[in-house]
Protein backbone atom coordinates (compact mmCIF):
# COMPACT_ATOMS: atom_id res chain seq x y z
CA UNK A 1 0.00 0.00 0.00
CA UNK A 2 1.18 3.51 -0.73
CA UNK A 3 1.38 6.01 2.13
CA UNK A 4 -1.67 7.76 0.70
CA UNK A 5 -3.68 4.52 0.83
CA UNK A 6 -2.43 3.72 4.35
CA UNK A 7 -3.40 7.20 5.59
CA UNK A 8 -6.86 6.90 3.99
CA UNK A 9 -7.44 3.48 5.57
CA UNK A 10 -6.35 4.81 8.96
CA UNK A 11 -8.57 7.86 8.68
CA UNK A 12 -11.67 5.79 7.92
CA UNK A 13 -10.98 3.22 10.67
CA UNK A 14 -10.34 6.02 13.20
CA UNK A 15 -13.57 7.75 12.25
CA UNK A 16 -15.66 4.58 12.43
CA UNK A 17 -14.09 3.46 15.71
CA UNK A 18 -14.94 6.87 17.18
CA UNK A 19 -18.56 6.37 16.11
CA UNK A 20 -18.63 2.86 17.61
CA UNK A 21 -17.36 4.32 20.87
CA UNK A 22 -20.20 6.84 20.89
CA UNK A 23 -22.65 3.96 20.41
CA UNK A 24 -21.02 2.03 23.27
CA UNK A 25 -21.11 5.12 25.51
CA UNK A 26 -24.87 5.42 24.97
CA UNK A 27 -25.45 1.70 25.59
CA UNK A 28 -23.32 1.90 28.76
CA UNK A 29 -25.25 4.86 30.16
CA UNK A 30 -28.60 3.26 29.22
CA UNK A 31 -27.66 -0.04 30.91
CA UNK A 32 -26.38 1.94 33.90
CA UNK A 33 -29.68 3.81 34.07
CA UNK A 34 -31.56 0.47 34.06
CA UNK A 35 -29.36 -0.72 36.96
CA UNK A 36 -29.92 2.55 38.82
CA UNK A 37 -33.70 2.31 38.44
CA UNK A 38 -33.77 -1.37 39.40
CA UNK A 39 -31.67 -0.66 42.48
CA UNK A 40 -34.01 2.08 43.71
CA UNK A 41 -36.21 -0.54 45.39
CA UNK A 42 -34.05 -3.68 45.57
CA UNK A 43 -36.30 -5.21 48.20
CA UNK A 44 -39.29 -5.50 45.85
CA UNK A 45 -40.08 -8.76 44.15
CA UNK A 46 -40.99 -7.17 40.83
CA UNK A 47 -41.29 -9.80 38.10
CA UNK A 48 -37.92 -10.76 36.62
CA UNK A 49 -36.07 -8.10 38.67
CA UNK A 50 -33.06 -10.33 39.38
CA UNK A 51 -32.81 -11.37 35.74
CA UNK A 52 -33.03 -7.74 34.60
CA UNK A 53 -30.30 -6.67 37.05
CA UNK A 54 -28.08 -9.50 35.80
CA UNK A 55 -28.76 -8.64 32.14
CA UNK A 56 -27.98 -4.94 32.70
CA UNK A 57 -24.74 -5.90 34.47
CA UNK A 58 -23.78 -8.16 31.57
CA UNK A 59 -24.43 -5.36 29.09
CA UNK A 60 -22.17 -3.03 31.07
CA UNK A 61 -19.36 -5.61 31.27
CA UNK A 62 -19.56 -6.34 27.54
CA UNK A 63 -19.56 -2.62 26.76
CA UNK A 64 -16.37 -2.23 28.82
CA UNK A 65 -14.85 -5.08 26.81
CA UNK A 66 -16.04 -3.48 23.57
CA UNK A 67 -14.52 -0.15 24.61
CA UNK A 68 -11.12 -1.81 25.13
CA UNK A 69 -11.34 -3.38 21.67
CA UNK A 70 -12.41 -0.19 19.96
CA UNK A 71 -9.69 1.82 21.76
CA UNK A 72 -7.12 -0.66 20.41
CA UNK A 73 -8.60 -0.31 16.94
CA UNK A 74 -8.51 3.48 17.24
CA UNK A 75 -4.85 3.48 18.32
CA UNK A 76 -4.03 1.13 15.44
CA UNK A 77 -5.80 3.47 13.01
CA UNK A 78 -3.82 6.46 14.27
CA UNK A 79 -0.56 4.56 13.72
CA UNK A 80 -1.33 5.12 10.02
CA UNK A 81 -1.57 8.91 10.34
CA UNK A 82 2.04 9.75 9.49
CA UNK A 83 4.78 7.90 7.58
CA UNK A 84 7.26 8.92 10.29
CA UNK A 85 6.43 9.71 13.89
CA UNK A 86 7.94 9.59 17.37
CA UNK A 87 6.66 6.62 19.34
CA UNK A 88 7.38 5.13 22.75
CA UNK A 89 8.31 1.46 22.38
CA UNK A 90 6.61 0.74 25.72
CA UNK A 91 3.27 1.88 24.28
CA UNK A 92 3.81 0.18 20.93
CA UNK A 93 4.71 -3.21 22.42
CA UNK A 94 1.70 -3.05 24.76
CA UNK A 95 -0.44 -2.27 21.72
CA UNK A 96 1.08 -5.20 19.78
CA UNK A 97 0.37 -7.61 22.64
CA UNK A 98 -3.21 -6.36 22.62
CA UNK A 99 -3.63 -6.60 18.81
CA UNK A 100 -2.12 -10.10 18.63
CA UNK A 101 -3.94 -11.46 21.68
CA UNK A 102 -6.52 -13.36 19.67
CA UNK A 103 -3.87 -15.09 17.53
CA UNK A 104 -1.96 -16.08 20.67
CA UNK A 105 -5.16 -17.36 22.25
CA UNK A 106 -5.90 -19.49 19.17
CA UNK A 107 -2.42 -21.01 19.52
CA UNK A 108 -3.02 -21.61 23.25
CA UNK A 109 -0.06 -19.38 24.13
CA UNK A 110 -0.09 -16.63 26.72
CA UNK A 111 1.12 -13.33 25.26
CA UNK A 112 2.03 -10.36 27.43
CA UNK A 113 3.98 -7.12 27.21
CA UNK A 114 6.59 -6.06 29.77
CA UNK A 115 7.52 -2.37 29.76
CA UNK A 116 11.09 -1.07 29.95
CA UNK A 117 11.95 0.93 33.07
CA UNK A 118 11.80 4.25 31.21
CA UNK A 119 10.25 5.59 28.00
CA UNK A 120 12.09 4.38 24.89
CA UNK A 121 11.26 6.94 22.22
CA UNK A 122 12.24 6.41 18.62
CA UNK A 123 11.29 8.03 15.32
CA UNK A 124 9.99 5.42 12.89
CA UNK A 125 7.25 4.40 10.48
CA UNK A 126 4.71 3.21 13.10
CA UNK A 127 2.46 1.22 10.76
CA UNK A 128 5.29 -0.69 9.07
CA UNK A 129 6.95 -1.35 12.42
CA UNK A 130 3.66 -2.82 13.68
CA UNK A 131 3.59 -5.07 10.58
CA UNK A 132 7.14 -6.21 11.27
CA UNK A 133 6.46 -6.91 14.95
CA UNK A 134 3.25 -8.78 14.05
CA UNK A 135 5.20 -10.98 11.63
CA UNK A 136 7.90 -11.62 14.23
CA UNK A 137 5.22 -12.47 16.79
CA UNK A 138 3.60 -14.86 14.29
CA UNK A 139 6.92 -16.67 13.90
CA UNK A 140 7.44 -16.87 17.66
CA UNK A 141 3.88 -18.13 18.18
CA UNK A 142 4.50 -20.87 15.62
CA UNK A 143 7.69 -21.91 17.40
CA UNK A 144 6.35 -21.75 20.96
CA UNK A 145 4.91 -24.77 22.73
CA UNK A 146 1.18 -24.85 23.45
CA UNK A 147 0.47 -23.67 26.98
CA UNK A 148 3.70 -21.67 27.17
CA UNK A 149 4.12 -17.92 27.58
CA UNK A 150 5.55 -15.33 25.21
CA UNK A 151 6.70 -11.84 26.21
CA UNK A 152 7.20 -8.81 24.01
CA UNK A 153 9.32 -6.17 25.67
CA UNK A 154 11.36 -3.12 24.76
CA UNK A 155 14.95 -3.14 25.96
CA UNK A 156 18.40 -1.72 25.27
CA UNK A 157 21.05 -3.88 23.70
CA UNK A 158 24.52 -2.36 23.54
CA UNK A 159 22.87 0.95 24.33
CA UNK A 160 20.54 0.82 21.33
CA UNK A 161 16.74 0.55 21.57
CA UNK A 162 15.42 -2.90 20.76
CA UNK A 163 12.35 -5.11 21.06
CA UNK A 164 12.69 -8.61 22.44
CA UNK A 165 10.10 -11.29 21.73
CA UNK A 166 10.98 -14.28 23.81
CA UNK A 167 9.71 -17.30 25.63
CA UNK A 168 9.72 -16.93 29.40
CA UNK A 169 11.94 -17.22 31.38
CA UNK A 170 14.58 -16.14 28.82
CA UNK A 171 15.50 -12.46 29.11
CA UNK A 172 16.76 -10.16 26.35
CA UNK A 173 20.56 -10.24 26.06
CA UNK A 174 22.56 -7.19 27.27
CA UNK A 175 24.89 -7.49 24.31
CA UNK A 176 24.41 -8.94 20.87
CA UNK A 177 25.49 -12.57 21.00
CA UNK A 178 28.16 -13.22 18.33
CA UNK A 179 26.42 -16.23 16.85
CA UNK A 180 22.98 -14.71 16.20
CA UNK A 181 21.51 -15.03 12.72
CA UNK A 182 18.65 -13.63 10.67
CA UNK A 183 15.57 -15.79 11.26
CA UNK A 184 14.93 -17.59 7.98
CA UNK A 185 11.17 -17.68 8.52
CA UNK A 186 11.17 -13.85 8.42
CA UNK A 187 13.00 -13.71 5.10
CA UNK A 188 10.02 -12.10 3.36
CA UNK A 189 10.42 -9.03 5.60
CA UNK A 190 14.02 -8.35 4.69
CA UNK A 191 12.96 -5.52 2.37
CA UNK A 192 11.37 -3.56 5.25
CA UNK A 193 14.44 -3.65 7.47
CA UNK A 194 16.31 -0.92 5.63
CA UNK A 195 13.23 1.32 5.60
CA UNK A 196 12.73 0.81 9.35
CA UNK A 197 16.47 1.00 10.10
CA UNK A 198 16.39 -2.23 12.10
CA UNK A 199 18.06 -5.62 12.12
CA UNK A 200 16.38 -8.83 13.26
CA UNK A 201 18.30 -11.53 15.07
CA UNK A 202 17.28 -15.06 15.87
CA UNK A 203 18.90 -15.72 19.23
CA UNK A 204 18.22 -19.49 19.15
CA UNK A 205 21.80 -20.22 18.14
CA UNK A 206 22.94 -18.33 21.26
CA UNK A 207 20.85 -20.58 23.45
CA UNK A 208 18.02 -18.05 23.90
CA UNK A 209 14.44 -18.66 22.82
CA UNK A 210 13.63 -15.38 21.19
CA UNK A 211 13.90 -12.89 18.40
CA UNK A 212 15.57 -9.51 18.81
CA UNK A 213 14.62 -6.46 16.72
CA UNK A 214 17.47 -4.01 17.09
CA UNK A 215 17.25 -0.38 15.96
CA UNK A 216 20.34 0.98 14.18
Amino acid sequence: MSQKEIAFTGRIIASLSHEIKNVLATIKESAGLMEDILSLRPETDAPHQARLVKAAGNIRKQVDRGVDVVMGLNRFAHSMDEPMAQIDLNELTAQMAFLMQRFAHKSAIGLSAAPYSEPLNIVTDPFRLEMLLAAALDVCLTRADKGSGLVIQPCRVEGRPAVWIGAAPDEPPDTLPPTVAFPEDLFALKGDLEHLQVNIYDCGSAGLHGVLILFK
Binding site: N22, A25, T26, E29, S30, G32, L33, D36, I37
Partner: peptide, 15 residues
Protein backbone atom coordinates in the same frame (compact mmCIF):
# COMPACT_ATOMS: atom_id res chain seq x y z
CA UNK B 1 -24.50 16.01 20.26
CA UNK B 2 -25.43 12.37 21.02
CA UNK B 3 -28.96 12.95 22.32
CA UNK B 4 -29.66 9.42 23.71
CA UNK B 5 -26.33 9.59 25.59
CA UNK B 6 -27.20 12.97 27.09
CA UNK B 7 -30.67 11.75 28.01
CA UNK B 8 -29.43 8.63 29.86
CA UNK B 9 -26.54 10.43 31.57
CA UNK B 10 -28.82 13.29 32.67
CA UNK B 11 -31.26 10.83 34.28
CA UNK B 12 -28.42 9.02 36.08
CA UNK B 13 -27.08 12.29 37.47
CA UNK B 14 -30.59 13.34 38.55
CA UNK B 15 -30.97 10.04 40.41
Amino acid sequence: DEEPFVDALAQRLEL
